[in-house]
Design a protein around this nucleic acid. Structure first.
Lengths: 176, 176
DNA sequence: ACTGAGTTTCTGTATTGGCAGAAATTTCGG
DNA sequence: CCGAAATTTCTGCCAATACAGAAACTCAGT
C-alpha cells in the first residue's frame, strides 16, 4: 500500500502534531491514515503503509479505540479485523475535546476542590486562596460551557462559531 | 523558602498537567509557583523552593518569557532579576491559547493550504480531497472564532460563556 | 483437539528530552 | 578597568518513552 506524495505529507504532518500533544507519533499517523483512506483497513495494511511494527500498530489501535476515535469493523469474506475512523471533523473534534477534558481538566478540578475543602486551607495566604478559587471557577465555567456546546449538532455549532464575537452585542443587552 | 502542603500540591499537580501538554515539568512548576506566591521571586528563591538546578530555572524562565507568561521585574535595592506572572486566569488562558494556536494550528493550516494548492491535488482520491478541504475549513472557522473571542475582555467573555448554548436559539432565527 | 491465521503481550534496545553541574559570559559597583 | 555577583550556555548523564521483534495467546475451521 503506497501513499501519494500529498497523502503522506498529510499523514506525516498529523503525526508531528500528535507528538506536540501527548499523542505519540504512530498513534497520530494511524489515525491520519484511516482518515485519508476513508475506508476500513486491516492491521497489516497499516504496517505496510506506515512501515512500523505489527505490535506497534496493535497497541496504537488499542489506544485509538480507547479514545473512541477508531472503531472495529469487518469486511465480508475477510476474517481479519478492520478499522476505520469518522470522516466528520466536527465529530472528531468533539471526541477529542471530551477525552482531553476527562483526562486532564476533570482531575485538575478535583485537586482544586480538595484544596479549597481542606481544613487548613483558610490558613493559607490570602493571595493563594484567592488564586485557587479563581482557577477553580475558571475551569468550571469553561467546562460547563464546553459541555453544552459539545452537545449541539455540528451544523448548529458551526453557525454559532460563525456568529463569533457578534454575540457580544447580546451580552450588553442581557446585562441591564 | 518552604511551601505549605496545599501550595506544593498545587505546584506539583500543575507540573503534572504541564507534562501532559508539551510543557516540561519544571517550566510548569515554576509558573505555578509564581502564580501561588503572587509576588516577584528571584531565580535563587525558585531553586531553593523547587529543588532544581540553577541552569534549569534559567532555561525554564526563558521559555516562560517566550510564551509571555512571565515577566521580568526588579525589586528596589536588589540587583537580581525577579520574575512574576499574571494572577488573572483569564489573561493566562488567553496567552496560552494564542501561543498554542501560533505554534500548532497555524502551521497545520499552512500545510493544508499547500496541499489543496498543489497542482496534482486534483488527481487525489475524491475522499482525500474532500477530507482535506473539510479539515481546512474546520480549522479556519475555529481559529477565526477564537481570534475574535480572545479579543474580548475577560468579563465579557465570561458572560458569553455563561450564556452557553442558549445562544443556539438565536441561530435558528438567524438561519432564515 | 489440532492447525494455522490473527492478535496481543512481553522484553530489550534506541531515541528523545530533561536536568545537574561546570564553564563561560555578562553586568554592575567601585 | 577590576572583581564579585548574577546569569546563560555548554556538556554529559539519566530517565522516560517509543518501538521492533519474539513469544505467547486466541479462536475459527476442520
Amino acid at each position: 500500500m503506497e501513499l501519494t506524495k500529498n497523502e503522506s505529507q498529510f499523514v506525516l504532518h498529523w503525526g508531528e502534531m500528535g507528538s506536540r500533544w501527548g499523542v505519540n507519533r504512530t498513534v497520530a499517523q494511524i489515525h491520519a491514515l484511516l482518515f485519508v483512506m476513508a475506508r476500513p483497513m486491516n492491521a497489516d495494511e497499516i504496517v505496510e503503509t506506515l512501515n512500523v511494527a505489527r505490535s506497534n500498530v496493535s497497541n496504537s489501535i488499542k489506544e485509538l479505540q480507547s479514545w473512541q476515535l477508531v472503531k472495529l469493523t469487518h469486511v465480508m469474506g475477510d476474517r481479519r479485523d478492520h478499522f476505520e475512523t469518522s470522516g466528520d471533523v466536527w465529530e472528531l473534534f468533539r471526541i477529542i475535546v471530551r477525552g482531553r477534558k476527562q483526562r486532564e481538566i476533570d482531575p485538575t478540578i478535583n485537586v482544586l476542590r480538595e484544596l479549597t475543602a481542606a481544613k487548613d486551607f483558610g490558613k493559607e495566604s490570602a493571595a493563594f486562596q484567592e488564586r485557587v478559587g479563581a482557577s477553580l471557577e475558571f475551569l468550571e465555567v469553561l467546562t460547563a460551557w464546553s459541555d453544552e456546546m459539545m452537545r449541539l449538532s455540528p451544523p448548529t455549532l458551526v453557525k454559532i462559531l460563525k456568529m463569533g464575537a457578534s454575540v457580544q452585542g447580546l451580552v450588553r443587552g442581557a446585562k441591564k
